[in-house]
Amino acid sequence: MNTNLLIGGIFGAVAVTAAGSYAGYNSYVENKTPSFAEVISSKPVTETYYTNREECYDEVVQHQAEVKDQNKVTGTIIGAVIGGVIGKQVGGGNGKKLATVAGAAAGGYAGNKVQGNMQQNDVYTTTERRCNTVKDPQQRVTGYSVTYSLNGETGTVVMDHEPGATIPVQDDGQLVLNKPETQQF
């Protein structure tokens, strides 16, 4: 047997095997689903909720002092006595009596008014604690709106975690959207 023929046959078999392997590999690569989708952007999806807190402050409050002499008798009597004494100093005879009575009446009226003004202005102040419930808005991230590219097409999904630069793709072409569980030892 001719050795050239044998060597040529071996080279031919190797070439056919290599060409077939190359064609089979290209066919496999063309039909294979990528194992990752490229993340283009990731934006947090948030919701607003409210927390209550109590806001307190001190307020100065004026109070009317308790009136012990509602009818202002003390002021009326003192005013009448003083007015009568002053009226007695004026005039003579029956005029003196009339001036004393008029002075007592005017003094009583004035004493009543003076005591009323004093009672009205008799106030005291206290500091009282006032509190209100205030609602503070808070934000929490509920997921991420992720725009991705897979096989030349762009899509958007909402994920429960931030994916990073890529999203895993299953053999059937579906994205793996859930966060992988971490092993705990």
Rank of each mutant, 00 (worst) to 15 (best):
V123N: 12
G108V: 01
V123R: 13
A106V: 14
D136C: 06
C131Q: 14
T100S: 08
V146C: 03
N112V: 03
E153D: 08
N121F: 03
M118D: 00
E153K: 12
G93E: 07
V123G: 04
G143V: 05
G111M: 07
K113G: 01
A104I: 06
R129V: 15
P137D: 15
G107F: 02
G143D: 11
P137H: 13
P137S: 14
N121H: 12
G107H: 05
R140K: 15
Q138S: 06
S149I: 12
Q119E: 08
V146F: 02
G107L: 04
Q120R: 08
Q119I: 09
G93W: 05
R130S: 09
A106E: 02
G95D: 03
M118C: 10
V123S: 08
N121S: 09
G108P: 03
Y109N: 06
Y148T: 05
Q138D: 01
V101W: 12
Q138A: 05
G107W: 00
Y124F: 15
L150H: 02
G111N: 00
N94M: 14
N151W: 03
Y148V: 00
A99S: 11
A105D: 06
A99G: 08
P137N: 14
A110C: 13
G108R: 00
K113L: 05
N132W: 06
Q119L: 11
A99E: 01
G116D: 14
T125R: 13
K113V: 09
T127R: 10
N112D: 12
T127M: 06
Q120M: 11
Q115I: 04
R140F: 08
D122E: 06
G111W: 01
P137E: 15
R140V: 13
N151S: 00
E128I: 15
Q119A: 05
G93V: 05
V141H: 08
